[in-house]
Design a protein around this nucleic acid. Structure first.
Lengths: 198, 198, 198, 198
DNA sequence: CATGAATGAGAGTTCATTCAT
DNA sequence: GATGAATGAACTCTCATTCAT
């Protein structure tokens, strides 16, 4: 029955994900999950012992599914193209209301800081900064981009994205504002806007 | 007793502020406030009907006390000087652990979006963007700064700050990183670093 | 309201005592107490945080009410008379079914060993042994009793009583058996039986 | 499979015995047994329907294994020798922490009084009293011992042992105290101490 | 025989909120 | 105004017991 068990666990994780995306992290109770899954109180505890564990496993799955730079990057992509692809991907993430864990993730991190090893979110962030830095350095090397401080530039992009994410779940944000910011970021790197990024 | 009443209300708000700065928003219970103020359960309800109301009044007071650009700006200050002053002020805000409502504010905004009129935080944000924009435009006008898109630049500064704030309460952040970002931001506006910002 | 509060606490302790005397220690739940007192779930927690605390306070009260040697001992009482008085008192204690905490006390001590200071039961036991020893020594001194080892004799009396108590709550015991044992104990101390002890 | 079945049942009983000796009676859950035996939840129920049934069967086995007077008694043993042998055996029983069911047995008997026929513990007790009485009478007959009331003396020995057992699982007891009591008991029967009983 | 997933009752505990004093 | 005792809803977690496989 291990097979069935695994499927049920996945099922619970999916349903729980919906709950977290609707209610954030702190308000979610085991009862919410139980109701969403239509299983018994005790049944849930067979698979997960707390909302914390549930959430951490959801984050885990989330990251596994994600490829921070979608596979569409070809060998011949220019640095600017890669940056644009990355930003477009991020925009989708920021925009979507339904199914977004953004709020829940923040609430989770406000409350507890996981061990370094388990801290998937942080790992993702750090690796994204590094990759961006590489891309910028590459762009500078072949004359595409202008930038004195690739590391700071990369960090700045990530912080701006973080700011956008937060605003999207607090005071709200428009797609246009995101676009404008992306164009601005690219302009500080010497990339001039020729077309839309939507 | 109106006078006594007012003083008591202020007293409660002060004590409650401490509680919120320690525990964030969602974890705070009316009991926490009662304990912190050393008043009776029923007594608290005479002044405030919920933690929500308490928090909103704290935010209100907070804004009244704040002057986003500290009064130190003289008539002769250059645009760059004003920007630096502003950023230094923000850094203090981000760094301080004690007495910071940052986490509580985020948690509050995750949960409820107040009416526009009451939405002090948003109003502050909007006005800060406008002022920054003005300062940048001024700097561009007198040749101090270089910037094609003052509005986007101003917004970008605020978003970067937002990003820094969030990180300070999630994965943590170092004073150096903040400094580097400030220098980077100024450099994108054509201000070259000649000295420390600490 | 401190007065009312105190009275309510006493009321709860009384009702709880009944519950413990009926159900022993381990089976008693906070809900049992709540039901017995006809108060609300939360109400009980205002006074006691656990069945353990309840039970310990009951033991405390119990001991305060008890005087191990009832006040009836006159100046002229002989050692044998004192012993008989003591044993008769113990018999009452062992016999009574209703209102006896014997079972609960054992269950409590099986589970947790309180700090020495809080360990009222043990203190009582130790002091009883010492007093018995003194009485026996007194009796030996004035030729009433015969005993080479007063300390061991005193301990033996207490252990026999302990044995009787345990049997009374396990396999059961008859009043006659208790009497016979008392007579036997006295006879080992050289006191001959002239009358009944019931 | 009857054979296999029997072996499995015995296996469960052994493991369960360990659990009871560690946790007493009341705290033991079917889950504890399942975990200790490393079998399935349902599997356990095929053999035993409750912890009660388990415990009673353990007691049964226990008694079958026990011979209250170890086989070492020769034809020529004196009454005093037999008594000492018996007491030494009891001391071992009282002292050992590991594998002792003492606490569990008391908890069991506090909760339920089995039918006379099933009441192994009581049967053991009664037969021990009778045997002790016989031994004492024998000792008196051949001048070894002095005792007017052999039945009460036998009962007293058993009650003292009961008291020692209880104390060993409540407030604790030292080996020396046990020795002293044994010497005292023997002395009341006219047996003088010449050597150690350890 | 054997498994182990599933159920649901019930215990412990905390809190917002009310209300007699 | 002010108190704090009282209530009851809601949440977490554990277990005995059942049942499809």
């Amino acid at each position: 029955m291990g097979d069935k068990s695994v499927r049920k666990k996945q099922y619970i994780l999916e349903k729980a994900r919906e709950v977290f995306s609707q209610k954030g992290y702190k308000d979610v109770t085991m009862k919410d999950i139980v109701d969403a899954c239509d299983i018994s109180r005790g049944g849930l505890y067979l698979y997960f012992e707390s909302t914390r564990q549930l959430f951490m496993e959801i984050l885990q799955k989330e990251q596994e599914g994600d490829d921070i730079f979608s596979g569409k990057i070809s060998e011949n992509s220019t640095a600017a193209e890669i940056l644009v692809l990355f930003l477009v991907e991020q925009k989708k993430e920021i925009i979507r209301k339904r199914n977004s864990l953004t709020k829940a993730i923040y609430e989770f991190y406000f409350q507890e800081r996981p061990e370094k090893k388990e801290d998937i979110y942080r790992q993702d962030y750090d690796s994204a900064v590094k990759i961006l830095q590489k891309v910028i350095e590459m762009g500078v090397a072949n004359g595409e981009l202008t930038c004195d401080k690739p590391e700071e530039a990369a960090t700045n992009i990530m912080l701006t994205l973080e700011g956008l994410k937060v605003q999207s779940v607090t005071i709200g944000i428009s797609a246009e504002l995101i676009d404008k910011q992306f164009i601005y970021i690219l302009s500080t790197l010497g990339v001039e806007d020729e077309s839309d990024n939507a």
